[in-house]
Amino acid sequence: MRRTVSAQLELTTLAGATRLVMQLAVARVPGLQVEETLALTIDGAPLQAAEVPTAHGGVIHTVTLPPETPGGRTIRLRYDAEVGSDDDLETTAPDNPDDRDIYLRPSRYAESDRLFSVARRELGGADGLDLVQAAADWVHGRLRYVPGSSRVTDGAVETLLAGAGVCRDYAHLTVALLRALDVPARLVAVYAPGLSPMDFHAVTEAWVDGRWYVVDGTRLAPRPSLLRISTGRDAADTAFLSSYGAGIRMGPQTVTATVDGDLPADDHTSPVQIA
């Protein structure tokens, strides 16, 4: 499967020093063939970003603007990638006990310790892949997908109480329920061909029988087409853009993700792994 993805962002600076941290690039996975470009400008002039590798093949790009940077300057970013794969593409990370321990702990947006009783009551009779699927199905049936219904500070508990959210909220609740039942689970930010409306997307990966399997409570895109961007405990680790210092104002944002030919089928019940 060959996929084409892109992301375009426009930002306006506030006066003073600012550091931007961006996670937009397709993760470097053995067997994945990535041809990519990243273009950054400030008021039309080229801006150089530093590239920093992170966990699970992720890549961070960082830019630091000096203290004398005036407000009102326009930063534009464009990322484009053409992605193919070898026949021997790895679809699961090697066993790492440290990772499994990290992804069992409660985290900022996946408060598994606060959802222990709910998880036991609603999902306590299942195990293995059946449990992972049951958690995704339960979240899908419990929540309504409503753009703009949640705040960036909301975690799994707020999402459960509200009964609505967007992809990151679905993923946080699924992650928290699985961790509460002693299943290592993590959030993955992805490009998602077939997603409508198109945007960055978030899904859940769970560790079962020596492999990471992906589930998506929103069921808005076929899982076999997903392309990993970043992987972490929750949205605090996987945000596509963070700023530190004087700050920024967000402008227009466009994300695209397509596959050559037809989208793969996905009944959202079969086990699926992504690179």
Score class of each variant (00 low, 15 high):
Asp137Ser: 12
Val175Pro: 02
Ser149Leu: 06
Ile102Thr: 15
Gly124Pro: 08
Ala192Gly: 09
Arg121Ala: 14
Gly16Asn: 03
Gln273Leu: 03
Asp216Lys: 08
Val26Pro: 04
Gln273Ser: 09
Arg114Ile: 00
Asp113Ala: 15
Val34Trp: 06
Arg228Ser: 12
Ala93Lys: 02
Gly57Pro: 05
Gly58Lys: 06
Val118Asn: 01
Ala50Trp: 05
Ala235Ser: 13
His56Arg: 15
Arg249Ala: 12
Leu115Gln: 05
Ala135Lys: 05
Ala185Val: 06
Ala235Lys: 06
Thr269Arg: 15
Leu47Ile: 09
Arg249Ser: 13
Val157Gly: 06
Ser85Trp: 05
Ala110Phe: 01
Arg219Trp: 03
Ser117Tyr: 10
Val52Trp: 10
Ile42Lys: 09
Arg142Gln: 15
Val157Thr: 13
Ala236Glu: 12
Leu89Ser: 01
Ser230Thr: 15
Gly217Trp: 07
Trp212Phe: 07
Gly148Tyr: 10
Ser107Trp: 02
Thr204Asn: 04
Val146Cys: 01
Gly31Cys: 07
Gln253Gly: 10
Thr62Gly: 02
Met198Trp: 00
Leu11Cys: 02
Pro193Met: 06
Arg105Gln: 15
Val190Ser: 07
Thr204Gly: 01
Ala7Trp: 00
Ala134Asn: 03
Val188Leu: 07
Glu158Ala: 15
Val259Arg: 10
Thr174Val: 06
Val152Phe: 10
Leu32Asp: 00
Val83Ser: 02
Arg108Leu: 15
Leu220Pro: 00
Arg120Cys: 11
Val183Glu: 03
Glu51Pro: 00
Gly44Cys: 07
Gly31Ala: 04
Ser150Cys: 12
Gly84Phe: 00
Thr238Phe: 03
Arg78Ala: 13
His172Glu: 09
Leu65Val: 04
Pro53Gly: 10
Arg108Asn: 03
Leu131Met: 09
His56Trp: 12
Thr13Ser: 09
Ala136Val: 03
Val118His: 08
Met250Ala: 14
Gln253Glu: 13
Ala202Glu: 13
Asp99Ser: 11
Leu220Phe: 03
Ala221Met: 06
Thr91Leu: 14
Arg78Ile: 08
Leu227Met: 11
Leu241Glu: 03
Asp98Val: 15
Val52Asn: 14
Pro30Tyr: 05
Thr258Gly: 12
Arg211Asn: 11
Trp207Gln: 01
Ala7Thr: 11
Asp234Ile: 03
Val166Asn: 10
Asp237Lys: 04
Ala134Leu: 08
Ala164Thr: 09
Leu47Arg: 05
Gly245Tyr: 01
Val214Asp: 07
Arg120Phe: 00
Ser112Ile: 06
Leu32Gly: 01
Gly57Ser: 09
Phe200Leu: 10
Ala27Cys: 08
Arg114His: 10
Ala135Arg: 04
Val63Ala: 02
His61Asn: 14
Ile274Trp: 04
Asp182Ala: 15
Ala93Thr: 11
Asp260His: 12
Ala185Leu: 08
Leu178Phe: 11
